Amino acid sequence: MFKKLEAYFKSENDAEAVRAKLNNKVNVRNVMIDQVSDGLANKFVVPLVAGGGGTSATMPGNSPYPIPSSGEGFFKEDEGERKTVLECEVSEEDFNEALVILQENDAHVNKNSFE
């Protein structure tokens, strides 16, 4: 099965670089890059932060994979707008690896990707 993933970037070049990495490293399909005119005005997206580095993914704090950040200190005022969106479907087996790629490339991910 595949899970939908929606990530936002500062530029189209950033999104294109991630598209190439996803295509080379994970099982991904239906990859599209587009511009959104309203940016993130009507979306709830979060930056990804590293998990606790443990070996168990049962507790968010112990996840070896990126998790959505929450709390103060993760959102920066001067980040600039993210008007480029990359949408794709990632195999469930590769979903966490795809999140690592997104985290390494400063993507913000739609919160609904984690439900």
Rank of each mutant, 00 (worst) to 15 (best):
F75G: 06
S63L: 05
P64F: 03
G73P: 06
N30T: 09
L48P: 02
R82T: 04
D78N: 11
V18L: 08
N27M: 14
H108E: 01
G52Q: 08
Q35Y: 15
M32A: 14
V18W: 05
T55P: 03
V100H: 00
R19H: 05
M59D: 12
P64T: 11
R29A: 11
E87S: 08
A20K: 14
Y65W: 15
P66T: 03
M32S: 13
L22E: 06
A41V: 11
E81W: 04
L40E: 15
D38I: 14
E87C: 00
I101D: 01
L40H: 09
E87F: 01
H108A: 01
K21G: 05
K76S: 10
K83M: 06
L22S: 04
H108P: 00
G73C: 09
F95Y: 12
V45N: 08
V100T: 09
K76R: 12
V109D: 01
N42L: 14
F75P: 00
N96H: 03
G53A: 10
F74K: 09
N110A: 09
V46A: 13
V46M: 12
V109T: 04
T55L: 15
I67D: 04
E77F: 05
I33R: 10
E81L: 06
N62C: 07
E87Y: 00
L99K: 01
E93Y: 04
V31Q: 04
P60W: 06
E72A: 13
M32G: 11
L102M: 04
G53V: 09
E72C: 07
E93K: 07
G52P: 05
E77P: 00
A50W: 13
V26S: 05
N96W: 02
F95V: 07
T55Y: 11
A57R: 13
N42Q: 14
V28E: 01
N105M: 05
A50V: 09
S37K: 14
V26E: 07
Q103Y: 03
N42V: 13
A98L: 06
G39D: 13
Q35C: 10
Q103V: 03
S70V: 13
M32W: 09
M32D: 13
N42E: 15
S69W: 08
